[in-house]
Design a binder for these strands. Structure first.
Lengths: 353, 353
DNA sequence: GTATTGAATGGGAACGTTCCCATCGTAGGC
DNA sequence: GCCTACGATGGGAACGTTCCCATTCAATAC
């Protein structure tokens, strides 16, 4: 409590308790049981009296465990990333770990800088959701023994644990749903997949399975701030879809936002033109008539990432890298409800499911 | 580049370059100019060769500047917090500072823990957006000389710099707008203001100025997960508003979300019943017919917070704590457009402004 | 030519920990 | 009753920096 300007050191506590600094150190380093009861008590009292708090800097210098986990997030403004981050955070807390998050704003330079920052703080594990340039730096770290988990991404040349959505299943569920609702043409809209493996995976699955299901369709790749391109792509698709019921499938939440804006701008009636998105967002329920989504189990994903990290930390051996894939939950709403749908299910009756 | 398992130390660089560790230290501590050209070059080469990177732990131990700024965020899932955080981050980057963010999930215990974590890493400044319990700990830190900026909150007994919305002006702008659009009754919906000063400020201003403008109205305080209470409050207000054009003013973005959900559940026609929110969100434009909001300049707020921090760091003296208040921008949409509005402005003509 | 300066550089002690090793009892085995 | 061993404790050397101080050397002032 007596918060002098300079925090108390282990030596001061030791003096105050009349013991050696080694004993105090032991008390705080998980060797508490090795100490006699009376000593434990004296140390506890002295520490309380002086408001002692171990200095992680000094601890980290000497090489002790830091209890720190690092996380690299590509875009902190993406609600999906935040949701997963929240899951990671909770999981860390349960394990007594601290989390240090860095946002890279999709900038490879920042990515590298933040990576340097995190490693310099001696993190014990790293969860990466960042882009993909500079994979070498990551590979190097992983090679050096740092437990590494790739979140929603895989990186070429890196053989690390991965945690994320089961992209194939997600696309299948989406196509099933759209087919069942009577749509015969589907446009898949995605951000440029070059740097994000999950985009690639979704795109690839869409390409290979669309035709197999007898669906017509197309693909639109666009940077989301390039509204012109997006608009044109959507127009073309809509123009070509006068004969068959058509739907749009959005590759992630950001895409859903951009597409919904574009559709609203041209006053496209949702439902008649189907709209479906991967990632559930606050507002999908609110936009008339409600947008059908595939919700990712973000908490579970975060938890799984931390679990993988711990497993790596514990096991001296380096077992097969493990890939954990989660199945999304379909949240059907009226944006995928054709007016003339012959086999309407319950969802299609109400406006707000 | 040669990433040996253990990172290179300053001593190794010194040996490799054939100079003393002191010189290398100087090279990395901003005293580079004091070194001769040839020495600078030799050090740079050696460092490059060995992949040297100063160890912030050791640096922090010795008491040198950490270049670290800490930030405590009450709720990372609140888009407003994230937006400000992003502003802070950018500002830090420009100043060459690193940012360490901790989410407290509105939990006082976590708040205390994270505070301990941040201070133990020798942060040079702290930006706080957290609740309000444990103000003593903060006061203590500020008293100890740590530059402190309160973000969107003020805390009793703490005389620190504050940055945030000009709550009085915000409420005034909102009331002006609603009046102008012809609404005569206004319900102000807010989360419990006990712990957040900005909620208190908005509430107080609403209470004092509503009547002064000749508006009828009421106040609804509710926890947002208590949907029953929210529903009842809204029903009561709507039931009592049959004679006069009525509008709902939401105290922040979270409230806007909850209220919009509740209104949609009871199929209230937006516009006829006015709806307006403080905080601009992705989807406010998308929900039919568009929700009028007051947008906060989040980037500017984040930047200002960092500016305050720097000013404190620089000035040895402790000048008056300064309060910086930002004016929001009105984004008028059709949710505040009465069908029978006598003096419609441009906005009311289009569906999606 | 000597004294004075100041710039460029280096040596070594801290910073607060952890951890290896040494020391001290004391209990158990003979 | 002595030796062994083990449990409890303490001393001191690291860890990688920074920073105070000392040293060197050349240039300038007398």
């Amino acid at each position: 409590m007596p918060a002098s300007s300079r925090p108390a050191t282990i030596l001061e506590v030791a003096r105050d308790a009349g013991v050696s600094k080694t004993s105090v150190s032991r008390y705080y380093s998980g060797e508490r049981e090795r100490l006699s009861a009376s000593m434990q008590q004296r140390i506890a009292q002295a520490a309380e009296r002086l408001g002692y708090q171990p200095n992680p800097m000094a601890r980290g210098l000497k090489g002790g465990p830091s209890g720190l986990v690092g996380m690299l997030v590509a875009d902190i403004r993406n609600p999906f990333s935040v949701a997963v981050m929240h899951g990671v955070e909770q999981a860390c807390r349960r394990q007594g770990l601290s989390l240090m998050v860095c946002n890279t704003d999709n900038d490879p330079t920042l990515e590298r800088q933040n990576l340097a920052l995190l490693t310099s703080y001696r993190i014990e594990g790293l969860i990466v959701n960042a882009a993909g340039r500079h994979g070498e730096a990551l590979a190097e770290l992983a090679g050096g023994g740092l437990p590494l988990v790739l979140l929603d991404r895989s990186l070429e040349g890196i053989d690390a644990d991965e945690v994320g959505l089961d992209n194939d299943q997600a696309i299948d569920i989406a196509l099933d749903h759209l087919t069942e609702r009577g749509y015969r043409r589907v446009l898949f809209v995605t951000e440029p997949p070059a740097r994000a493996s999950s985009r690639q995976a979704r795109l690839a699955r869409f390409e290979s399975n669309r035709a197999a299901r007898g669906l017509e369709g197309d693909i639109l790749q666009a940077e989301l701030d390039d509204t012109t391109r997006l608009d044109h792509g959507l127009s073309d698709f809509l123009a070509a879809s006068t004969r068959q019921p058509a739907a749009i499938l959005c590759g992630n939440g950001q895409v859903t936002l951009a597409v919904t804006r574009a559709l609203q701008a041209r006053q496209v009636p949702l439902g008649e033109i189907g709209l479906m998105g991967i990632d559930e967002l606050d507002w999908c329920q609110l936009v008339t008539p409600g947008i059908t989504t595939l919700a990712q189990p973000t908490d579970a994903i975060g938890q799984a990432a931390v679990d993988r990290l711990r497993a790596r930390q514990a096991g001296r051996t380096t077992p097969e890298p493990r890939h954990e894939r989660f199945i999304p939950t379909l949240i059907p709403r009226a944006s995928t409800c054709r007016p003339g749908n012959k086999a309407p299910d319950a969802t299609c009756d109400e406006t707000r499911p």
